[in-house]
Design a protein around this nucleic acid. Structure first.
Length: 417
RNA sequence: GGAAGGGUGGCAGAGCGGUUGAAUGCACCGGCCUUGAAAGCCGGAGUCCGUGCAAGCGGAUCGCGGGUUCGAAUCCCGCCCCUUCCGCCA
């Protein structure tokens, strides 16, 4: 959610920034501005009535205490109360519309966000081989069991079996260990969340078609632990010296993938359920840009340590989600597909989520300011396994795995399927 | 799932339906005192909205929402959360 005061005081600048997302988004401002004006027309009138009520109430109280009659003041209260109630209802309607309109306005793109997807750099060596590269399913064999997964839960569900389970666990543990070294507190968050948490992070109203809902309990299956991590400090005013606060959340993630029919149907590249280690930072406003680069550098450190060739993309404004002001994706080279595919993603959501979640910092002057939040994928386990298998493959179909994982229980070599 | 109790300021904890934004204690900030500190004394201090250059002024806020009433922290209803007991359970 944008700062209403900013919209009010500098609508031109906000509109200009929003235009980079398109005219339709910029046009949303008009409704917000109009509703805000109506609100500020009604509010002083209502407050004046309330002031009269409060004054009359004091007189009544005083008269009662003195044992005197207060009919005149009570009459005045009675009269004003009716007017105040009607005005109050009018205000409530306008405020509800205002909040709904404001909730639909996406975040302002950062000045350094790209207009179109822009590859910043390619890192690592794309392996050359005389044989045809296999894809991860061919390499995994029954250790990735899609057929039985589909039989039990439907398409896009998989069984991970045997060695791959130890690979997953090693990957997770190695990542959490590395992140702790970078100052991230490991967290296993709730995966089922309330609507407020999704609204607060900007997934609602925006991506509802991607989210599983449990109507019996009115809970939602989170598509990322970002939801629960952002909500960790909802409603709190944090001391400025507590930030940066960094969390590494490990959780399963659930996505309906509605609208992705037919895409990436082979293997576990795009499934309804996967595990992920997610980084999440709460920072002071002025520290956000640097923190974003920091999250990106950690993502790159991880990909490099795992010897996965990748490229970094500054995501174009058209592909930014509503909460993001800027986003980098790291795309891994997948020999089985012969192209780069998204593996991790990090977003600077500035104060967009924190304002909705009412997360503030108490600055040196004692005044609360809205915090800034950022998120980034440390390891999306399923896709990382895909990348490890396809990049580590040898001609005989066995797979060499990165050394760093061995200490955490991963096999050094995955036998051919 | 059943039964009971409870949600008040950073924390603890009062609060006959009417000068209660809210006693008191602790914690916090400033001042006095002190060589320095502690103790003591004096004072200050929540958050949000509107208005104003500002000081300020006005409004809201006692889990959330609604109701009763001229008037609700206080009474009624719904929801959320916490605690205890029973049941169930990895």
């Amino acid at each position: 959610m944008l700062d209403l005061k900013l919209i009010r005081h500098d609508p031109g600048a906000v509109r200009t920034a929003l235009r980079r997302r398109g005219e339709a988004e910029a046009a949303r401002l008009d409704e917000v501005l109009e509703l805000d004006e109506r609100r500020r027309e009604i509010l002083p009138r209502l407050e004046a009535l309330r002031a009269i009520q409060n004054e009359a109430n004091a007189q009544i109280a005083e008269a009662k205490r003195a044992g005197a009659e207060a009919d005149e003041a009570i009459g005045r209260m009675r009269e004003v109360a009716g007017q105040a109630k009607a005005l109050g209802e009018e205000l409530a309607t306008v405020e509800a519309e205002l909040n709904a309109a404001l909730a639909l306005v996406p975040n302002l793109p950062d000045a350094t966000a790209a207009d179109e997807d822009t590859v910043l750099r390619e890192v690592g060596t794309i392996p050359t081989r005389e044989y045809e590269a296999r894809d991860h399913l061919a390499l995994a064999g029954e250790r990735i069991d899609m057929e039985r997964g589909a039989r039990v839960a439907g398409s896009r569900f998989a069984y991970l079996r045997g060695d791959l389970v130890f690979l997953e666990l090693a990957l997770v543990q190695w990542t959490l260990d590395l992140l702790r070294g970078h100052g991230f507190e490991p967290v296993i968050p709730p995966v089922l969340v309330r609507e407020e948490a999704l609204y607060g992070t900007g997934f609602l109203p925006d991506t509802e078609q991607q989210i599983y809902h449990l109507p019996e309990d009115d809970l939602y299956l989170a598509g990322t632990s970002e939801v629960a991590l952002a909500s960790l400090h909802a409603g709190e005013i944090l001391d400025a010296d507590m930030v940066p606060l960094r969390y590494a959340g490990f959780s399963p993630c659930f996505r309906r993938e509605a609208g992705a029919a037919g895409r990436d149907t082979r293997g576990i590249f795009r499934v309804h359920q996967f595990d992920k280690v997610e980084m999440f930072s709460f920072v002071a406003p002025e520290a956000a840009l640097e923190e974003h680069e920091r999250l990106l550098s950690i993502e790159e450190e991880i990909l490099s340590a795992l010897q996965i060739p990748y490229r970094v993309v500054n995501i174009g404004i058209g592909d930014l989600g509503a909460p993001a002001a800027k986003k980098y994706d790291c795309e891994a080279w997948l020999p089985g597909q012969g192209r780069y595919r998204e593996l991790t993603s990090t977003s600077n959501t500035t104060d967009y989520q924190a304002r909705r979640l009412q997360i503030r910092l108490r600055g040196a002057d004692g005044k609360p300011v809205t915090a800034y939040t950022l998120n980034g994928t440390a390891v999306a386990v399923g896709r990382t396994i895909v990348a490890l298998l396809e990049n580590g493959q040898r001609e005989d179909g066995s797979v060499e795995l990165p050394e760093c994982l061995a200490a955490f229980g991963a096999p050094a070599v995955l036998p051919a399927a």
